[in-house]
Design a protein around this nucleic acid. Structure first.
Lengths: 200, 200
DNA sequence: GTCTATATTGCGATAGAC
DNA sequence: GTCTATCGCAATATAGAC
């Protein structure tokens, strides 16, 4: 029980911060949920904020890995790149079920973690989408009048939103669980179909 | 300066809660931002939570009005109903620029306000979309294999996400401001084009 | 590395003067 | 209806024993 107090705190921090936000979670909550002592947070992470930032880095780990992997890949055709993004979102959500909630928590209610961690990753994801869409327009795959900046936001929105509302959707709305892949498949199909150049 | 202390508190509560979330805003913050006294929050709203709920109701006012208006309207064709929803989102955002942020704050980090206020409105909006999509599939406007539950989430996602990230997009990403209507027009076009039945 | 005990600060709420 | 002063409590953080 020595070294993995850190891991248990990161785990507890992920679920608690994801569900209630930074300000609504106390160090005592974290200690209790993880089975650690209150002092452990300061000892291992230098305080609540340090734990929060470490948790953010932990959550973004699969994103960072994926971005590195993509950099070493041979360039794909635009549609394949967008498809890769869609499957990336779904895949990352399997490994880090709270990442999207946490990230959007940072977007709606920014804390110091936005500057410290989140701002490192968002622009890189955005650039990837932007480039794919720009290339796709140039190649004639997508509508020539497409506003690429807006189209990036649309893709992120149509995919991310599902994972954010999913926990509450099942309690608020009559949405049966038919699987994340099914949602992503249909949403991405709608999007891709929507930005494609009209067949003449 | 008698009666409108209430209004000033509601105004300050809207911006502060929208930007930082319920837990991160103190009664002292609210008093200072509104020019009111700390005791005014308890006097007028029975406490911080009461003010928060009143603010939520105030934010949902345009939604409530719109839902009432729609109930008295003759039934529209499915595509028109979706179009109405899209323009409703844009129009409401003009009157209540913080509504979508606040609502999604409640979705990612639920407080008592979710049960008390938000849960009244979400299912009614969802039903409206669900019915329009179901009718559209039945009428042959939309793809017959469309999963209507998922398609509701997709439409909300593609539209709402923009308004949520807008404030930060301008600081994080190279997205120039080309107007909300332009975003909504393109995003809705993508969505509608995406769910339409393939021309044979 | 872990724990208890404690220092300090800030919180929400309200009693009571005006 | 507004304000000051204050109560009681919970927050983060840490000193020091183990």
């Amino acid at each position: 029980m020595e070294k993995d107090t850190r891991a248990k705190l990161l785990e507890a921090a992920s679920t608690l911060f994801a569900h209630k936000g930074f300000a609504a979670v106390s160090v005592r909550d974290l200690a209790q949920a993880s089975g650690a002592n209150v002092a452990a947070v300061s000892y291992h992470f230098g305080g609540k904020e340090g734990l929060y930032h470490a948790m953010l880095e932990y959550q973004f780990e699969p994103i960072a890995e994926a971005l590195e992997r993509i950099k070493t890949m041979p360039p794909l055709p635009p549609v394949e790149r967008l498809t890769l993004y869609a499957s990336l979102i779904a895949g990352v959500h399997q490994r880090r079920p709270y990442l999207l909630r946490i990230m959007h928590g940072e977007l709606t209610s920014p804390t110091s973690g936005l500057e410290a961690v989140v701002k490192k990753y968002i622009p890189r994801i955005y650039s990837f989408l932007h480039q794919a869409l720009t290339d796709g327009v140039a190649a004639g795959d997508f509508r020539p009048d497409l506003d690429v900046d807006f189209a990036c936001i649309s893709l992120a929105g149509i995919l991310n939103f599902y994972f954010i509302v999913k926990p509450l959707a099942r309690q608020l709305l009559p949405v049966p669980d038919r699987g994340d892949e099914k949602y992503v498949a249909q949403a991405f199909a709608i999007y891709l179909n929507g930005i494609r150049r009209e067949k003449q």
